[in-house]
Design a protein around this nucleic acid. Structure first.
Lengths: 225, 225
DNA sequence: CCGTATCAACTCCTCAGACAAGCTGACAAC
DNA sequence: GTTGTCAGCTTGTCTGAGGAGTTGATACGG
């Protein structure tokens, strides 16, 4: 039997406590924390436990320890973990975010695509066509995502590409669920719509490319709500 | 004299080494690492040093240790730190990402804005007008960002809002640099363009709102390149 | 008065050893 | 086959010791 309730080790509890105190304003940004021995006495744990707690928060870029000087606050809260944000968010919200990224990506791709990008389109589209016909679900999903990624990379914008990659795990999971619930799902966003997006980018027509990307992704979004 | 090269503690070096090995595929996702004593002998450090390295990677959500069972790989690489990504990225790439988010935000806002959102527009626009006239640079920047945030929040999409907030620190820094270099900068994206966006959202015209947002942000983007 | 050198007290860093707590697989009993 | 037990592994925690780096006060020389 799996134990659902997981008792946290002391070091993790100590890290949570420190995080809470930082959030409560006990130590301002850039402030120095009390020494290890002091903190250990305050929290009623050993020194090595405090060290591990500090090390964990250092990994999360909240604390920074400098030998001889002390431990300092370098952020008042951990950086947003985007994986977590997307996991918790409504899938419709996620798909609207994806639509924003990919529509703009298609528009810029139409302006900046290189011959290598076009070659990439041909490969990923052919792959997707094969997968849609007779491959298992997960192959089809990967092939579909590969084409969409090719579109975004053709925009030659590192931020857009990184954004897309951040969204991929969440989108992949949603597609898996989709295909389980609805076996006809794959027929609904057909190959033709994808070819059309690639054609518009090839033709260097930004408005058409953006429009077709928007149309396709709106359909995807509508199909889940 | 400041020491520019910062010698990393052994624990951090050990964490880097483990991260490298994970990236090299020495341990797959879900695999169990050798025991602490074994690792300590392999890397030639003490056991508590290994423990701190593991704890740091646990903080970064790469490893997870379970008492009695072992240490396991739960991610092959640390989650992207978006602050860092945006800091390193070209400002033009960042502004194009912002354009994607905010254009879609304006479009959805025109469909979903509530009376409270409209009130928010009135307040932030009035504030921005005052700040543009006679406030210090940082006030003006905050007022400008507050209005843009109001537009995105009116889309009522948690992912878009979160994305915008992620971009804010980087955009703020860019605006500060802008105002230093060019004292006339604030006159170039004038109040009228902002009022026009709000008007289109108030009129429930998604295409107009998106178009005006795009136009304004394109101008901002062009002004820096 | 100002700049510099010294140094003591403080900090974190690392190691080693001991024991507690928890998990896992093998093996015996039923 | 199922269950119970347990030995041997794992990580968790504490303590004590010494090393290494930083900082600020203090004394010294100009």
């Amino acid at each position: 039997m799996l134990r659902m309730i997981r008792r946290h080790p002391l070091a993790e509890q100590a890290a949570e406590e420190l995080l809470r105190r930082i959030g409560d304003g006990e130590w301002a940004l850039g402030a120095k924390l009390p020494g290890e021995t002091t903190l250990a006495a305050q929290l009623g744990v050993g020194r090595s436990t405090i060290r591990e707690a500090v090390r964990e928060l250092a990994g999360r870029r909240v604390l920074e320890s400098r030998q001889g000087a002390g431990v300092f606050v370098i952020a008042l809260q951990p950086a947003e973990d985007w994986d977590k944000v997307l996991r918790k968010a409504d899938i419709t919200d996620v798909l609207e975010g994806r639509l924003a990224i990919e529509t703009e990506g298609a528009r810029l791709a139409a302006l900046r695509r290189t011959p290598a990008d076009l070659k990439n389109f041909r490969y990923t589209l052919a792959d997707r066509k094969r997968a849609a016909a007779n491959a298992p679900d997960d192959w089809y999903i990967e092939a579909d995502l590969a084409f969409h990624r090719a579109v975004v990379t053709a925009a030659h914008n590192a931020v857009l590409t990184e954004l897309f990659d951040t969204f991929v795990p969440r989108i992949r999971r949603a597609m898996i669920d989709m295909l389980k619930l609805d076996e006809e799902y794959r027929h609904r966003h057909d190959q033709a719509a994808h070819e059309a997006i690639a054609d518009a980018i090839r033709a260097k027509d930004p408005e058409l490319a953006a429009g077709r990307a928007r149309e396709h992704l709106s359909a995807v979004r509508s199909s889940v709500s």
